[in-house]
Amino acid sequence: MASASDQVAAAIAGELRLLDPSVRSSRALAAQLLDPEFVEVGASGRRWTYEEMLAALPGMRGAAQDGPRAEVSGMAGVLLAPGLVHLTYETAFGEERARRSSIWRREQGSSDWRLLYHQGTPVPRA
């Protein structure tokens, strides 16, 4: 069994891959990282399912190679149970900031980590 720090590092690597424009713009690559039971409550308040997110992700901010990218800060994680990691961090797109929370899961017998749940909460402008 991988150590707690190895499991957290694997979840962080997956989260950062999902922020990469080449992954965001590719349904096939994004599908490798989203759990089939994926749910998101976005910073807009909208609830997203696996299929909805895969369909919308290529058109979202951060998907264009030459477009704006999220600035990530304060990413940290904790092992909730073997194969289950909770990440928290903050993103900024210009002056728009959001606090984010993700739960990553690795199915027993698999080496693949997938995003199970994500929530974005807007940070009010100062």
Rank of each mutant, 00 (worst) to 15 (best):
L80I: 06
E51R: 11
W113P: 12
S102I: 10
T49Y: 11
E71K: 12
R69W: 06
Y89V: 04
R47N: 04
R69S: 14
A92I: 07
A76L: 03
L79V: 03
G59A: 04
W113C: 13
L79P: 02
D66A: 12
S102A: 09
W113I: 13
A81D: 13
M75H: 03
L57C: 05
E90D: 11
Y50H: 09
E107M: 04
R99N: 11
L57P: 01
Q65H: 03
T91N: 06
A76Y: 00
R114N: 05
L87H: 04
S102R: 05
I103C: 13
L79Y: 01
R46V: 11
G109K: 08
G62W: 01
F93D: 01
Y50S: 01
D66F: 06
A81M: 14
L87Q: 08
A63V: 01
W104M: 10
R61V: 14
A92M: 03
R114D: 09
Y89D: 10
L80P: 00
A81G: 02
E71V: 14
R47P: 01
M53G: 01
S111M: 10
R105G: 14
V78T: 14
W104L: 15
S73F: 06
L54M: 12
V78H: 04
E96G: 08
P58A: 00
P58G: 02
R106M: 14
G109P: 07
G77Y: 01
V72W: 01
G109I: 10
G77K: 11
T88D: 03
V72F: 00
E51Y: 02
A98P: 04
V72M: 04
S101C: 14
L54P: 08
Q108A: 15
P82Y: 01
M60S: 13
M75R: 00
E107A: 15
M53D: 08
Q65T: 04
A76R: 08
R100K: 11
R61N: 10
G109F: 06
W48D: 12
D112M: 10
S101L: 13
L116H: 15
G45A: 02
R99V: 11
L116T: 12
A55K: 06
P58W: 00
E52I: 02
S111F: 07
A92R: 06
R47T: 10
I103D: 05
Y89S: 10
